[in-house]
């Protein structure tokens, strides 16, 4: 009796090592694995037309310094962190162009209208309204938890907070959404 052949997908660390030794295909696997989640994160943060460009810039930035990447941190976490920094840089540059002083939470909240494009069903619309009412930090924590199933420690690394604080932000976000849904 022969056992079916099983192939375990290569880990991120293995793919990075392969790419560093000259295997371009390893980059393809890494991009396929992480592009979708990065795009989802960007979209959930309010990016609309530039998702593609932002995700591409994130990968380019990451691969340019991949040889210095320390694998004690997850590649996924690192990529999300890069994307978030790039996004903040863009927002700051945009604000400078518009001659507006500071990036504050109200600005970020009003920019979060990517979900406006979805008018599918009533529950989705109510969730959209509820998510729009979250603070930016709550929204980041909530989307990373819901979209990617990230652990709080990993989320803390991306958003620059503590694990405990992220847990609180998530539960506050969830409670706010539930209350908003029950009010409607």
């Amino acid at each position: 009796m022969t056992l079916p052949a099983t192939s375990t997908p290569a880990t991120d660390a293995e793919l990075i090592a392969r790419w560093l030794s000259g295997d371009q295909r390893a980059a393809g696997e890494l991009v396929q694995r992480h592009a979708g989640p990065l795009a989802r994160f960007a979209a959930s943060l309010g990016v609309r037309d530039e998702v593609d460009e932002l995700v591409q810039d994130t990968f380019v930035r990451a691969f340019q310094s991949l040889d210095s990447f320390r694998s004690d941190s997850a590649l996924r976490t690192w990529l999300f962190t890069i994307l978030k920094r790039l996004l903040l840089d863009r927002k700051r540059a945009e604000r400078r162009r518009r001659d507006v002083a500071e990036l504050d939470e109200r600005d970020a909240a009003t920019e979060y209208d990517a979900l406006d494009t979805l008018v599918g069903d009533e529950t989705a619309a109510r969730i959209r309204g509820a998510v729009n009412g979250l603070t930016p930090l709550q929204r980041e924590v909530f989307t990373l938890r819901v979209n990617e199933g990230m652990a709080y420690a990993e989320i803390a690394e991306v958003v620059g907070s503590t694990e405990g604080a992220c847990r609180v932000h998530y539960h506050n976000a969830l409670r706010a959404i539930k209350e908003r849904l029950s009010d409607d």
Binding site: L20, Q56, R128
Partner: peptide, 26 residues
């Protein structure tokens, strides 16, 4: 919420990303 986020996420052109990446050091 997960379905909502997925629905608003545009498809990403992974081929374009690969073209933009630097050459592997090796």
């Amino acid at each position: 919420a997960g379905a909502l986020f997925t629905a608003v996420t545009p498809a990403v052109d992974t081929a374009a990303i690969l073209r933009a990446l630097p050459t592997p050091p090796g």
